[in-house]
């Protein structure tokens, strides 16, 4: 009873099931997909990259952007940047957090504390940034995405493409223009960016070449001090911040899938054996 038409229809249904097709803003150039170490079924974070990304976040981004869900202790957890507990403790001690039970209402942070916000209130943040609110970084890498035109998004369900956030962040950080294109009215205090929805972004270009000095361990290759490199590193770090258990999840997933495929094979063999000799 299973004819090819049935199968084709089922495939069409599956394709239809996956249809978050959305309007593509035609003035936005296509976002190039980067090759990330955490993509695919065997994806894991690159520890060195996360450490570099953390450095960019700490020295540049964190002066305006918070990360309220990131705890210092997370930085020492497996699958992350891989700092030692002593390093995290020392790092936390450099920051102050509000604590009503402490002398004077503030104390040095400990590993269990969350990343302190650069501004006390939303209004403070807006006042310091020309009315714009710098979004919190905690899950930002998953709150952004790349939309592919039909039929290309269909393939994403088979490749498990989940790196739209870091791809967008990388594109955004490299998408600034010193001057808006002719005919585009740019409001005061705004900057022109190819990839930002509406193109007028409140954040000035945050990165420039040689802004952050990477320390190179002996015998390791030199890492270029470029906007391209910084933006890739910080996008990877932001993905880790948003999805800290990605590596563990994928490792478990691989074992589970392997088991399911083998188990399905055994189940099929058993089913055939039971049904042997029965016309159906």
């Amino acid at each position: 009873m299973l004819n090819t038409k049935t199968i084709l229809a089922a495939l069409a249904l599956v394709a239809g099931l996956a249809a978050p097709a959305m309007a593509q803003d035609h003035s936005t150039p296509h976002i190039e997909k980067q090759s990330w170490s955490f993509a695919g079924i065997f994806g894991t974070y690159d520890q060195n990259q996360l450490q570099r990304g953390f450095q960019v976040f700490r020295e540049v981004c964190s002066s305006c952007h918070g990360a309220r869900l990131l705890a210092f202790r997370n930085l020492a957890e497996a699958g992350g940047p891989g700092f030692s507990e002593a390093q995290v403790k020392a790092l936390a001690a450099e920051y102050e957090v509000a604590d009503a039970t402490a002398d004077g209402g503030v104390r040095a942070a400990v590993a269990a504390d969350r990343w302190p916000s650069p501004f006390e209130t939303e209004q403070d943040a807006r006042d310091a940034n020309g009315g714009a609110l710098p979004p919190d970084f905690s899950v930002l890498a998953k709150a952004r995405g790349v939309t592919d035109a039909f039929p290309f998004w269909v393939f994403n369900y088979f490749t498990g493409y989940s790196e739209g956030g870091p791809d967008y962040i990388h594109a955004l950080l490299n998408g600034y223009h010193e001057e808006a294109p002719e005919g585009f009215e740019l409001a005061d205090g705004k900057y022109y960016n190819d990839y930002f929805p509406g193109h007028a972004i409140g954040m000035g270009p945050p990165l420039m070449d040689e802004l952050v000095g990477y320390e190179v361990a002996e015998g390791e290759a030199e890492v270029p001090l470029t906007v391209e490199q910084y933006s890739t590193d910080v996008a990877a770090f932001m993905m880790w911040m948003a999805e800290p258990h990605l590596a563990g999840r994928k490792q478990t997933g691989f074992v589970v899938l392997l088991f399911l495929v083998l188990f399905a094979g055994l189940m099929y063999a058993t089913k055939r054996r039971i049904w042997q000799g029965i016309e159906h």
Binding site: A18, P20, I41, P135, V139, L140, K142, A143, R144, G145, N156, Y157, G160, Y161, S162, G164, G165, A242, R249, K250, T252, G253, F254, V256, L257, L260
Partner: peptide, 19 residues
């Protein structure tokens, strides 16, 4: 089911729901 749950848990949702 496991493919989506382990390798692309957010692909069937919408990024805006992380705001």
């Amino acid at each position: 089911f496991a493919w989506f749950a382990f390798f692309a848990p957010d692909i069937l949702g919408h990024p805006d729901n992380y705001i």
